[in-house]
Design a protein around this nucleic acid. Structure first.
Lengths: 194, 194
DNA sequence: CAAATTTCCTAAACTACTTCATTTTTAATC
DNA sequence: GATTAAAAATGAAGTAGTTTAGGAAATTTG
C-alpha cells in the first residue's frame, strides 16, 4: 500500500492526482526484519524512512558502551539520522527495527529533485521540518523541567501505544534514566494503584 | 543596516536584487532595551526575530519558579518561541534581552506571504528549519550522553562568545544544572590549571 | 518444546548533583 | 559615587538517580 504516503502528504499540502503519483513513485517499499539496521554510524544516511508498519529505534552508543535512544518511530512517523541525512555526512546513530517492519524509503537525491520540481513539495518538507523542530523543542523543555518520574508519566499519557511496543531499556534510555530506575518507577506506580 | 539580512539569506539561497529588496522590506528594525521581553507566555508569538546586535535568552518558568533556559541568540541568530510562532498558539516561553539590542522582526503573516510568493523563500525557511532541527538533535544527544562537566566543556569550546556574554545562572539552566554546581565546575577548572 | 538469549526485577551501596543558608563580589541605580 | 540590588562563590547536608550483581521472567530460535 504505497498509496498510504499519498494520503499522508495530502493532509499537509493538497496535491493533484498527477502530483500524488509523482510523489509516490519516488518511494521504495522495503521489508525490514526485526533487529535489522537501516542506518549505521560512519555510513551516510542515504534515506529518509516512512514507517508503514512496524517500529524502529534510533540510538547512539556513548563512550562506555551504554546506548541512548534518540527517537522512536511507529506507523506514520519518519525516521533517520537527520544530521547525517540533511548534510549528507557520516551518521553517528544506529536505526534498528524493533519488529518486522515495512517502510517507504525516499532517497536524498530524489528528495532534492522533488523539492526543486515543485513548490508544493518544498512546502511539504518545510512543514515536516518545522513540526520536527517544535517536537524536539518540547522534548528539550520536558527534559530540563521534569523529574525522571514525571517524564515517564508524561510519555505514557502522550504515547501509550509506543510504551506497549518498545522494550523497557530502550524507553528508559530515551527518557534519560537507567532501566533499573524505570523499573522502580513502574513498580512504585503499581503498588500505589492497588 | 537592514541589508545585513540580505547577505544572510544570500548565503542560503541565491536571490536576485529585486528578491532581496522584497525580502528585506518585510522586516522591521526594532531597538530592544536590556531586560525587555519580546515574547511572553500566554501571548501568541507574532514574530520571528533576527538578532542584528545584542543577546537574548529564551526560557520557561517551571512549577517551583526556577527557570530553564531553552536557547540563547546573539548576532545572526534567529529567536522566538517556535511552538507558538509556527502554530500561532499561546507561548509558553519568555524571550528577554540580555543586553541593549537591535533586531529585525518578521511577522507571521508576512512570512506566509513570502513563502507563497516564491519557491526560493520557501526553500530558505525549509533550510532554516532543517538546520534548527539538526541543531536540537545534537543538543538532545549531548544532554543524554554527557555529564554536567562535559556539557559545560563542550559548550565553552563551541560557543566561547556566548559564554562570555550570558550570566552564569542562565548558562547553568541551559546546560541542565544549578548555578551553584556550575560555579563549582568552573572553580575546579581554574585550580586544575594553576 | 527445550535451550539459549534477551529482557526485567530487586536491593544495597554509591555518587553526581541539588538544596539551603551565608558571605563575597559585581553590577545597576539614583 | 554611595546605596541597593543582583549575581556568584562556598560549605554542609540531603536526595534523585546510578552502579553492581544476582536471579526470575519472558522471548527467540533451533
Amino acid at each position: 500500500m504505497i498509496n498510504k504516503i499519498a494520503s499522508y502528504i495530502d493532509k499537509v499540502v493538497k496535491l493533484t492526482d498527477e502530483e500524488k503519483e509523482l510523489f509516490c513513485s519516488c518511494f521504495k517499499e522495503v521489508k525490514i526484519k526485526k533487529r535489522q539496521f537501516i542506518v549505521q554510524p560512519n555510513f551516510v544516511a542515504r534515506h529518509r524512512h516512512y514507517v508503514l508498519n512496524g517500529a524502529f529505534r534510533a540510538y547512539v552508543v556513548a563512550g562506555e558502551g551504554q546506548d541512548h535512544t534518540i527517537t522512536f518511530a511507529i506507523e506514520d512517523w519518519w525516521i533517520t539520522d537527520y544530521n547525517s541525512y540533511i548534510f549528507q555526512q557520516p551518521a553517528t546513530m544506529f536505526v534498528v527495527a524493533l519488529e518486522d517492519s515495512i517502510i517507504l524509503q525516499l532517497d536524498y537525491e530524489k528528495e532534492q529533485e522533488l523539492k526543486m520540481q515543485s513548490h508544493k513539495f518544498e512546502t511539504f518538507f518545510r512543514i515536516v521540518a518545522e513540526r520536527g523542530l517544535a517536537f524536539q523543542q518540547r522534548r528539550i523543555i520536558s527534559n530540563l523541567t521534569h523529574t525522571a518520574e514525571e517524564r515517564y508519566e508524561n510519555f505514557v499519557s502522550k504515547y501509550p501505544l509506543i510504551v506497549k511496543r518498545v522494550p523497557q531499556y530502550a524507553l528508559a534510555s530515551y527518557l534519560g534514566m537507567t532501566t533499573e530506575f524505570l523499573s522502580r518507577i513502574r513498580n512504585k506506580r503499581v503498588s500505589k494503584k492497588s
